[in-house]
Amino acid sequence: MAVLPIIITGDPVLHTPARAVTDFDARLAQLVADMYDTMEAAPGVGLAAPQVGVPLRLFVYHWVDDDDRLWRGVAINPELWVTPVPLGEPDDDDESEGCLSVPGERFPLRRSARSILRAVDLDQKPFEIQADGWLARIFQHEYDHLDGILYVDRLDAGWEKTVAKVIRKSGWGTPGNSWLPGVDDLDA
């Protein structure tokens, strides 16, 4: 297992839709294992393959809900259905979101309260998860990565200048920027 560098916003792999996984082989299993290690080292609750420079439709997740239930898995070639996003302004505390590809930053974003995730696992076994709350948010965030969308792309218009300033000040927004969990201190 290995911790992989996490690509920072601006690299084309993060802003381009990913390709379907077609080869379920030892390389895919190794990628998934490395993605778990990377996510846990970051630390994060989800990580999509494009975030480690691999343009494939898969993500891993690891989260413990309020009932101490562990949600951990890999979603390969996922489909996601969501309820309508509620109207109104997002709450700065309860709806703030971060991303390992925009390390150290958090911004308020309103998401759908519920989602249904359908995917296959490493053994190509189909599964479905009906999620709400933070788990639904995690699935929406990671699924967006597979379509080349970062959460900062979804922020309300009032945040555009702030996000652009943070990206410019950090030296991001161009290809080739990454950080390595456990080595780089970026406070993701």
Rank of each mutant, 00 (worst) to 15 (best):
I76V: 10
D123P: 05
P86D: 01
E89T: 08
R69M: 13
G148M: 09
I138W: 13
W71I: 00
N77P: 01
E142W: 08
R114T: 02
S101I: 09
H145Q: 12
I76H: 06
F139T: 02
D66H: 12
I76A: 05
D93L: 15
Q140R: 12
P90Y: 04
P103K: 06
D65W: 04
A131E: 03
S112L: 09
P86R: 00
W81F: 03
K125V: 15
V82N: 06
D92G: 07
Q130H: 14
G104F: 11
V60C: 06
R106S: 11
R118Y: 07
R114C: 04
L80C: 10
A136H: 06
G88P: 01
G133A: 15
S101A: 09
L87K: 09
D66T: 04
L58H: 13
G148I: 09
I116E: 08
E89K: 12
V85L: 01
D121C: 13
D147T: 06
L100S: 01
D92H: 05
P108T: 07
H145G: 14
D92V: 13
L109E: 02
R110P: 05
Q124N: 12
G73D: 00
P86S: 03
S115W: 02
L80N: 00
V74I: 02
W63C: 04
V82Q: 06
L122M: 14
H141R: 11
L70H: 03
A75L: 03
S115C: 11
E89L: 09
K125G: 10
L70V: 12
D123S: 15
H62I: 01
L87E: 12
G148D: 05
E97R: 05
R111K: 14
W63V: 06
A136R: 12
W134M: 15
D92Y: 08
D68V: 06
F107A: 11
Y143C: 10
F107I: 08
R72I: 02
C99Q: 01
D123K: 13
V74G: 00
E128K: 08
L122T: 09
A119D: 11
V74A: 01
P90D: 00
W134V: 10
D67H: 08
E79C: 08
L58W: 06
R72Q: 12
H145A: 11
Q124E: 14
W63H: 09
W81S: 01
I76L: 13
K125D: 06
D68E: 08
G88Q: 07
S115M: 03
R114F: 11
S115L: 00
R114S: 04
D132L: 04
P103L: 13
P126K: 07
H62F: 03
V74D: 00
E89C: 02
R111S: 03
V74L: 00
W134K: 08
E128M: 14
D66Q: 07
D94G: 06
S96G: 06
A136V: 03
R106Y: 07
P103G: 13
V60Y: 02
W63I: 04
S96P: 04
V74W: 00
R110M: 09
P103A: 13
L58G: 04
V120D: 10
R72A: 10
I138L: 08
E89W: 03
E105T: 09
Q124D: 11
W134N: 10
D132H: 07
